[in-house]
Design a protein around this nucleic acid. Structure first.
Lengths: 257, 257
DNA sequence: CAGTGGTCTAGACCACAAC
DNA sequence: TTGTGGTCTAGACCACTGA
């Protein structure tokens, strides 16, 4: 009796050995049941485990396919704040990206609690939420989901932040004009399993993670004027930054406790 | 007939409603079967899905528990290159971290293919591999797994890079002394599902991702002298960087195709 | 209409943990 | 000894795809 882990390992080996063409479905679950001499459920469980692992992906009622080995040069970007005639972007490869799919008008709602904390509002407070799915100009499906959160007091002073169209330079130019000062950005990168909605919108395999860039915009180094969360498939994106050298050549080591 | 997704949703609601204490096991699979009136397999499948999602975690033969809502302030760090009397570190919160568990002597081996590419060596070439599990001084389990890859030609010129102990300032000081130039660092953040080994070593729930920081060390802005990969549980860590403003105020937009 | 991935059921074991 | 999570089996449907 072979366990589903054993079967998964056998399938892994068959995939590595090139037993099946990469662009065609691998044998169906009933075929795999015969091939490895196990119950159908067991074969299915093995396939499901490999799907969760990212080696395979399944399209219901069509077949199970081998996931191409990560479109080799997983796109990497040196994150900086770039500006062109139209607005800001933080990724040289995404300068001409635009909103994909139906436009979602800005709404007022409750942000995720981690965003609320950074934004400095209470967990249940309302904020302005600007949601977009973005991708290359000719794409019909988005590559990333970007959500911008703005504190209501600021929107009260600057109502255009709640408008569908915020004009050239977007919200960042409006905010800098309003304060007469430059915005400073900090980005935090995190990851978690993709939600069902993200799996669907970004074509993420079941069980695979999303990479999340949380960008905090500040004025005067402390007042948070915006928090932006951009989500993308972790198997298609990674994010790169230059690392600066701390200014003190030798950093004092805390005395032992 | 309720599907396992329905049951999972019901369990989600029960967890959110606080039906079960957070620090004690939730009812066993057989209890859940009765509670929701489904087959045992179905109840088990629902639990397994929630474990993969990160809401629950199971300890075989002991019970299934509610995962505590991420130790609130998921540690965030402003990544910089810091230096103290002992050596370099890139995270202010990890200045006093040390190797945890058995010391692994430096070895010669084949690096992952993405590392080989960055390092500029062929996919099958050998490099020097320095592997460490690190964590706080009093911890018995590591928080992060750090692996350093060095090109063999450099190790030939600087044999100390293959020694267990590389002296004060570690490999970075040795390399800077050798070249008489400063190292420049770039970090790339990515994520993928944790391997079985990482799940065990870092206590990562099944199906949850690891966050990977790949740090590339260069001399003269082009020669790669080291690649370091640090892996950590994505539900316990995130990484932050300052974003600098691109030097050209307005970045030219490529002409339309 | 046949083949597909996906699902549910009912029943049976297993190895280990806690008592 | 009892309860636990985990696993395997055999059989049955289902909704949909693609020929």
């Amino acid at each position: 009796m072979a366990s589903y882990r054993d079967v998964a390992e056998l399938i892994r080996q068959d995939v590595a050995a090139g037993t099946w063409a990469a662009d065609r479905p691998i044998p169906g679950i009933d075929k795999l049941r015969d091939r490895y001499g196990v119950a159908r459920e067991t074969a299915h469980r093995a396939v499901k485990a490999l799907v969760a692992e990212g080696l395979l992906y399944s399209i219901p009622r069509r077949g199970t396919y081998i996931r191409p080995p990560l479109p080799a040069p997983t796109r990497i970007r040196d994150r900086q704040a770039y500006r062109d005639e139209i607005g800001y972007f933080f990724d040289l490869g995404a300068q001409d990206w635009r909103a994909v799919g139906p436009a979602i008008p800005p709404q007022v709602g409750v942000p995720p609690s981690d965003v609320a904390d950074v934004l400095g509002v209470a967990r249940k407070d309302h904020v302005m939420v600007r949601d977009r799915a973005i991708g290359p100009p000719d794409a019909d499906l988005p590559e990333q989901l970007a959500t911008s959160y703005l504190p209501m007091p600021l929107v009260g002073q600057l109502p255009i932040l709640g408008a569908p169209n915020t004009g050239p330079g977007g919200i960042y130019d409006r905010i800098e004009e309003h304060f007469g000062k430059a915005i400073e950005w900090e980005e935090t990168v995190s990851a978690r399993p993709a939600t069902a909605h993200e799996q669907q919108a970004l074509r993420i395999g079941s069980g695979l993670p999303v990479l999340i860039i949380t960008r905090t915009s500040r004025i005067d180094d402390h007042q948070v004027v915006e928090v932006n969360q951009t989500r993308m498939a972790a198997d298609r994106y990674s994010v790169s930054y230059g690392v600066r050298r701390s200014e003190s050549a030798v950093f004092p080591r805390p005395s032992a406790a």
